[in-house]
Computed example of a mutant assay.
Amino acid sequence: MSTRTIPEPHRTAVRRGAPVRRAGARPLRRRRPTRWAGPGPGPRPRLRRLGALPWISPAVVLILAVVVWPVVEMVRTSLRRIDTSGVDQGPAGFGKYRKLFADPRLPDVLTWTAVWTVVVVALTMVISLALAQLFDQRFPGRTITRWALIAPWAASVLMTAIGFRWMLDQVAGVLNRLLLDLGVIDTAEAWTGDAAHAKPWLVFVAVFVSLPFTTYTLLAGLQTIPAEVYEAARVDGASPLQTYTRITLPLLRPAFLVALVINLINVFNSFPVIWGMTQGGPDADTATTTVFMYMLRSYDVAESAALSVVNFAAVIVMVLVFLKVSGWKEAAR
Rank of each mutant, 00 (worst) to 15 (best):
L180W: 09
L180T: 04
L180V: 01
L180G: 04
L182D: 04
L182H: 02
G183A: 04
G183V: 00
V184F: 10
V184P: 06
V184R: 05
I185K: 06
D186A: 08
D186E: 15
D186Q: 14
D186S: 11
T187R: 15
T187F: 12
A188Q: 12
A188N: 07
E189V: 10
E189L: 03
A190K: 11
A190N: 14
A190E: 13
W191Q: 08
W191C: 03
W191R: 07
T192S: 09
T192V: 06
T192R: 13
G193I: 02
D194F: 08
A195Q: 15
A196K: 07
A196P: 00
A196G: 11
A196L: 07
A196Q: 12
H197E: 08
H197T: 04
H197A: 04
H197D: 08
H197C: 02
H197R: 12
H197M: 04
A198Y: 12
A198D: 14
A198V: 00
K199V: 07
K199D: 10
K199N: 13
P200E: 04
P200S: 05
P200D: 09
W201P: 09
W201S: 07
W201F: 13
L202A: 02
L202Y: 08
V203F: 15
V203W: 15
F204R: 10
V205H: 12
A206T: 05
A206W: 03
V207P: 10
V207L: 02
F208Y: 14
F208T: 03
V209I: 10
V209C: 06
V209N: 11
S210K: 05
L211G: 01
L211T: 01
P212V: 00
P212C: 01
F213R: 06
F213Y: 12
T214E: 12
T214K: 10
T215Y: 10
Y216M: 10
L218W: 04
L218K: 07
L218H: 11
L218V: 01
L219I: 01
L219S: 03
A220F: 01
A220N: 13
G221S: 01
L222Y: 06
L222C: 04
Q223S: 09
Q223K: 11
T224S: 15
T224N: 15
I225A: 02
P226H: 07
A227F: 00
A227G: 11
E228G: 02
E228N: 07
E228T: 07
E228C: 01
V229P: 01
Y230S: 13
Y230L: 05
E231L: 03
E231D: 15
E231H: 10
A232L: 03
A232V: 03
A232Q: 13
A232Y: 00
A232S: 14
